[in-house]
């Protein structure tokens, strides 16, 4: 069970209030008609699916109903950071592998 910090409500809430919505930071191609089939297929169907640090979109479905981003480890299920839409993550796969994550992550969730 996750205990998730909603960056809009500024509170920890139980997982049941939220829904995961897949990978975060996927930009829709600006000119779909000019996009090749390969690039459109990538946009629609191909996801990173990493074993490790993953940036994902969640919605606070029965709370404030806002979308926000979560950085989570898909092996340990530990939530490393939550941040608002439009912001960039401060914890990434690179920062975790170099060991700087623990100091920069300000909002840590309780792991499952």
């Amino acid at each position: 069970m996750f205990y998730i910090y909603c960056p809009y409500c500024a509170e920890y809430r139980e997982e049941e209030e939220f829904h995961p919505k897949g990978q975060a930071h996927i930009a829709r191609p600006l000119d779909p008609m000019a996009t090749s089939d390969d690039a459109w297929g990538d946009y629609l169907f191909f996801r990173d699916n990493p074993r490790g640090v993953h940036h994902e979109l969640w919605v606070h479905a029965v709370g404030c109903r806002k979308f926000f981003n979560v950085t989570r480890d898909t092996r340990t299920y530990a939530i490393l950071e939550t941040y608002r839409i439009g912001e960039q993550p401060s914890v990434t796969a690179d920062s975790v592998s170099t060991g700087s994550a623990a100091s920069t992550a300000t909002l840590t969730g309780v792991q499952a």
Partner: peptide, 11 residues
């Protein structure tokens, strides 16, 4: 959610 932990949520 994505997960490789071979376990899921209690809910």
């Amino acid at each position: 959610y994505l997960g490789y932990g071979q376990r899921g949520s209690f809910s």
